[in-house]
Design a protein around this nucleic acid. Structure first.
Length: 806
RNA sequence: GCGGAUGUGGCGGAAUGGCAGACGCAUCAGACUCAAAAUCUGACGGUGGCGACAUCGUGCGGGUUCAAGUCCCGCCAUCCGCACCA
C-alpha cells in the first residue's frame, strides 16, 4: 500500500516551495493576460466561503492562462476608504486607520489560504497617501477640464450615515449601505459631470464582452431617449415654458400642461385666487420624501390659474403643478396628452380635464375611453394638417418639423444625472480644493499632492451637512495657492468609489511616484482582460470606472477607453434555504475549519463544484466530502500506477484524448462545475480501466494531473513530481495538454433503438454504420417487439434509430 | 407596471432536438472489523409486478417534429433589476 493522501503535508510543502520558486514570472517575452478580482474592503468580520468563490474562479482561470504560456497579472488590493471601514471603526471605538490596518492584515492572511497566485508586489491600498495622491490628481484634472463643479441643490441624504449620496447609491429610496430611508437635503456639493460621457458610455457598451444583464442595466441607467422640446408661450405673459416630449406626434392632443412644483416659474404662474393653494402645494411637495413620492402613486396637483398656448394650433391649455413631474429631468415641465399617456390619463380623469384622441385605434376613435392608448400605431385624427399620417412615421419626423416651424427643436435626454461626489464623512480622500474669497475654488497644485487626511480625535459624522474636517481650524485655514490670501480648505471628502474607479490601472506600476501609471507600462499591461466579481456593482463601480477610464484616455494618461474587456459575475453563495450568509443570522461558514480538515485543494474544488458559477448557490458542508474522496481516489490511482510502466492501449489513448477535449471545452465555456464532475467521471473511468487492464499508462495520468493542477494546485504539483516530471506543473514548458480529435472517436457505439420515439432496445454498432445495416441491426434487437406496418425508418449515425410504425 | 433570470429525484445539479437524472451529497443493503469510523461493492424518480417488464414523469396548458427538459404560443410561481424619466 502506497502513501495515503496527506493534504496537510503536501500543502505545506508546496506553499514553501512556491515562495522560494515563484511560478508566475514575467520573462518579458510571454504575452500578458490581466485577470482581475474586484478588490475587497477590509471588513472586520473576515472572509466566509462565499468570498472564496470569486477568488477561486479567477485563480483557476489565471493558472489556466499561465499554463497557456501567458504572463498573468493577477493582483490584489484593498478598497479601504469609505463608509464600511469608518462605520466599523466607530462601532469598535478604534481610529479607522488602525482598524483598517488590522483588518487588512487579517484578510490578507485569509486570502493567502486560497493559494492564489497573487503578486503582492503590486498590492495597492486606497488609503495609502502614495495611492490617493493620484485619486486627488485625477480630481484636479477633472476640475481643470470643467468636469468637476460645485452646485448647491437638494441631494439624497442618508440620515443614518449622515452624508450625501449619489443617485446610484439610493436603492428603492433607501441607502445602499445601511438601508435607512433617504431624505433630501440642500447642500453645496462637488459634482462630477459624468453626463458629458453619457453618449460614449452608452455606445461603447457594444465593444464589451460583458453579461447582457449588466449592459442592459447600464444602458437603462443612462436612459437615453429621443424627442423634442416644444416652446409654449404663457397666455397673457412674456414667459415661455419649454416642455420635453418623446411623443411630439401627439401635440394636437395636449389638453393641459404640468410643471414640477420645483419649476422656477411655478410660483409666478399663480393668480390672486390660486396663490394660497399653489404655495401650499409647493411647500407640501418639498416636505415629501422620495419614498413617499414613490410609494404613493395617487396623483395630486393644483391648477395655477394660468394658461399656456399650444404653438401648433393656438389652443389655450391650463397649467397645473404636480409632483409626478420630476424637476431634474428634461425641462421639468411636460405637455399632457391624456388620450395617449397613462399618467396624463389618470391625472385628467381625476381633475376632469378634457381628453382628445389624436391617434385612431383600430382605425377609429374610441367612444368611451377607459385607458390611454399608448401605442404609436395608427392614423392621426383631430390633428389638423397632420390628419391621415401614420403616427409611427410622424413620431420620427415631428421633431424636425417642429424645429422648422420655429417653436421647438429636436433633442435627446438622459436619465443619468451628474455624480454627487462630496461626502460629509471623515474616512475618505480630502477633496484637493481651496476656497478663496478672491479666486473662488482653486485646486491644490499638482506638485503639492497628496493633500493628507489630517489625524483627528473626533472623526464621527456631524450630521449637520459638514464633514468632521470642518472642525479642525488649523487644517481648514490656509492660503490661496493663486493669490496667497487667507483661504479655507474644502472639508468634504470623496466617496468610496473614487479610489475603486481607477485602482486597476495602478497595480501594474504600483510604486511609481511620478505618474498614476507610466504610459509605457499602461501600454504593455493594460487594460484588464478578465474582470471577476459580483453583479452588485453594475451601475456603481463598473459605470464609474468606465467614466474614469474614458477621461484618463482623453487627457492622454492612457491609450484605451474601456477598462474591462470581459466581465464575469459570479453568483452568491448563501446558507441553508438560500438565506444570505451574515453574522446576525448565524449561518456564516468559515473556510478556516474546512481548510484544516480537507485542505485548500478540496475547498477550492468544492467552491466550483457547488453549482454553475454564474448562479447563486446554497452551501452544504457535507458536499465537500465528495471532492475530498475524489482527490483521495485519484491520488491512489496515480500512486498505484506511476511506476507500472503500462503501455497505452488504443482505449487508453482514446479516453485520454476525449478527456482532454471534454475538460478543455467545459473550461473554455466557463462551466466550472462540470469541469469538476468531468474530472470525477474520468477518474472513475480510469479506475475501471486499471481494473481491467492491470493499470493505466503514464501519459494519461500526466495529462490528468496537468489539467487538475489549476484547480487543485498543491496535489497537482505533488503528483507531477511523483510522476517524475520536470519542473513545476505550471511552468510554460509544461503547457495545458492538447487533444487529437482523430483519436477521440469510438469505433463502436451503443445507440438507442426506438419505436415511435420510445426506446425499446439498445444496440452496439459501428459508429459510421450505413443506414441499411443500422436499421437491420436495430430491427434484430427489437425482435418481436416490432409489430405493425413500418411507415418510416430514421437513422442518425452515432445517435439514434427510430422505427415509425402504424 | 416594464425588463431579465430561474423552475428537472430526498438534496446540489447534468444533458450540440436523439436512451432524462451524468457527477456528487444523503439514504439503504452487503464486504472488511470484536465494534465503530474510514474504505470497497451494490441499490437508489413515481406507480404496478416475485420477475424479465409495463406505465407515468423535467412548473401548468397547447403546438411543431419520426423524436421536445431543449424549439414555438399562452399561462403560473420564485428571485433579481428598474420603476411617475413624459
Amino acid at each position: 500500500m502506497s502513501t495515503p493522501y496527506n493534504h496537510k503535508e503536501i500543502e505545506k510543502k508546496w506553499r514553501k516551495h512556491w515562495e522560494e520558486h515563484p511560478i508566475n514570472v514575467n520573462d518579458g517575452k510571454k504575452p500578458k493576460y490581466y485577470c482581475l478580482d474586484m478588490f475587497p474592503y477590509p471588513s472586520g468580520s473576515g472572509l466566509h466561503v462565499g468570498h472564496w468563490r470569486g477568488y477561486v474562479i479567477s485563480d483557476v482561470w489565471s493558472r489556466y492562462k499561465l499554463k497557456q504560456g501567458y504572463y498573468v497579472i493577477h493582483p490584489m488590493g484593498w478598497d479601504a476608504f469609505g463608509l464600511p471601514a469608518e462605520n466599523y471603526a466607530i462601532k469598535m471605538g478604534i481610529h479607522p486607520s488602525i482598524s483598517t490596518a488590522s483588518n487588512i492584515a487579517n484578510i490578507k492572511r485569509q486570502i493567502n489560504e486560497i493559494a492564489a497566485i497573487y503578486d503582492w508586489d503590486m498590492e495597492v491600498n486606497t488609503t495609502d497617501p502614495e495611492f490617493y495622491k493620484w485619486t486627488q490628481w485625477i480630481f484636479v484634472k477633472m476640475f481643470k477640464a470643467g468636469l468637476a463643479y460645485e452646485k448647491e441643490m437638494p441631494i439624497n441624504w442618508c440620515p443614518s450615515c449622515k452624508t450625501g449620496l449619489a443617485n446610484e447609491e439610493v436603492v428603492n429610496g433607501k441607502c445602499e449601505r445601511c438601508g435607512a430611508e433617504v431624505t433630501k437635503k440642500n447642500l453645496k456639493q462637488w459634482m462630477l459631470k459624468i453626463t458629458a460621457y453619457a453618449d460614449r458610455l452608452l455606445a461603447d457598451l457594444d465593444k464589451l464582452d460583458w453579461p447582457e444583464k449588466v449592459k442592459k442595466m447600464q444602458s437603462d441607467w443612462i436612459g437615453k431617449s429621443y424627442g423634442a422640446e416644444v416652446d409654449f408661450p404663457v397666455d397673457g405673459a412674456d414667459e415661455t415654458i419649454t416642455v420635453y416630449t418623446t411623443r411630439p406626434d401627439t401635440l394636437y392632443g395636449a389638453t393641459f400642461m404640468v410643471l414640477a412644483p420645483e419649476h422656477k416659474l411655478a410660483k409666478g404662474l399663480a393668480t390672486e385666487e390660486t396663490r394660497a393653494a399653489v404655495e401650499d402645494y409647493i411647500f407640501k411637495s418639498s416636505m415629501r420624501s422620495n419614498v413617499d413620492r414613490m410609494q404613493d402613486k395617487e396623483k395630486t396637483g393644483v391648477f395655477t390659474g394660468s394658461y399656456a398656448v399650444n404653438p401648433l394650433n393656438g389652443a389655450k391649455i391650463p397649467i397645473w403643478l404636480s409632483d409626478y413631474v420630476l424637476a431634474d429631468y428634461g425641462t421639468g415641465a411636460i405637455m399632457c396628452v391624456p388620450a395617449h399617456d397613462d399618467r396624463d390619463f389618470e391625472f385628467a380623469t381625476k381633475f376632469h380635464i378634457p381628453i382628445i384622441q389624436v391617434i385612431a385605434k383600430d382605425g377609429k376613435e374610441i367612444e368611451h375611453m377607459t385607458e390611454a392608448y399608448t401605442e404609436a400605431a395608427g392614423t392621426m385624427i383631430n390633428s389638423g394638417e397632420w390628419n391621415g399620417m401614420e403616427s409611427a412615421v410622424l413620431k420620427k419626423e415631428a421633431p424636425e418639423m417642429i424645429e422648422k416651424m420655429g417653436f421647438g427643436r429636436k433633442t435627446t435626454n438622459y436619465k443619468l444625472r451628474d455624480w454627487v461626489f462630496s461626502r460629509q464623512r471623515y474616512w475618505g480622500e480630502p477633496i484637493p480644493i481651496v476656497h478663496c474669497e478672491h479666486c473662488g475654488a482653486v485646486p491644490i497644485p499638482e506638485d503639492q499632492l497628496p493633500l493628507l487626511l489630517p489625524e483627528v480625535e473626533s472623526y464621527q459624522p456631524t450630521g449637520t451637512g459638514e464633514s468632521p474636517l470642518a472642525d479642525i481650524d488649523e487644517w481648514v485655514n490656509t492660503t490661496c495657492p493663486v493669490c496667497g490670501a487667507p483661504a479655507k480648505r474644502e472639508t468634504n471628502t470623496m466617496p468610496q468609489w473614487a479610489g475603486s474607479s481607477w485602482y486597476f490601472l495602478r497595480y501594474v506600476d504600483s510604486k511609481n511616484p511620478d505618474a498614476l501609471v507610466s504610459r509605457e507600462k499602461a501600454d504593455q499591461y493594460l487594460p484588464v482582460d478578465m474582470y471577476i466579481g459580483g453583479v452588485e456593482h453594475a451601475v456603481l463601480h463598473l459605470l464609474y470606472s468606465r467614466f474614469y477610464t474614458k477621461f484618463l484616455c482623453d487627457i492622454g494618461a492612457i491609450d484605451f477607453d474601456e477598462p474591462f474587456q470581459k466581465l464575469f459575475n459570479q453568483g452568491m453563495i448563501n446558507g441553508k434555504n438560500g438565506i444570505k450568509m451574515s453574522k446576525s443570522k448565524g449561518n456564516v461558514v468559515s473556510p478556516d475549519d474546512l481548510v484544516r480538515d480537507y485542505g485548500c485543494d478540496s475547498l477550492r474544488m468544492y467552491e466550483l463544484f457547488v453549482g454553475p458559477p454564474e448562479l447563486d448557490a446554497e452551501w452544504d458542508d457535507r458536499g465537500i466530502d465528495g471532492v475530498y474522496r475524489f482527490l483521495n481516489r485519484f491520488w491512489n490511482l496515480v500512486m498505484d500506477n506511476k511506476d507500472k510502466d503500462i503501455a497505452a492501449t488504443d482505449e487508453m489513448i482514446r479516453v485520454r484524448n476525449k478527456m482532454i477535449y471534454d475538460i478543455t471545452t467545459r473550461l473554455e465555456a466557463f462551466s466550472l462545475n462540470t469541469v469538476i464532475s468531468g474530472f470525477m467521471e474520468y477518474n472513475n473511468k480510469l479506475i475501471e480501466i486499471a481494473k481491467q487492464s492491470g493499470g493505466v499508462d503514464k501519459q494519461t495520468l500526466v495529462d490528468f494531473v496537468s489539467m487538475l493542477a489549476p484547480f487543485a494546485p498543491h496535489i497537482g504539483e505533488e503528483l507531477w513530481e511523483q510522476l517524475g516530471q520536470s519542473g513545476s506543473v505550471f511552468d510554460k514548458e509544461n503547457p495545458w495538454p492538447v487533444y487529437d480529435e482523430s483519436k477521440m472517436a469510438e469505433t463502436e457505439v451503443e445507440i438507442a433503438v426506438q419505436i415511435n420515439g420510445k426506446t425499446k432496445a439498445v444496440v452496439k454498432i459501428a459508429k459510421d454504420a450505413d443506414k441499411e445495416n443500422a436499421i437491420a441491426a436495430g430491427k434484430a434487437a427489437l425482435g418481436d417487439k416490432l409489430a405493425g406496418t413500418v411507415v418510416k425508418e430514421i437513422y442518425v449515425p452515432g445517435r439514434i434509430i427510430n422505427i415509425v410504425v402504424k
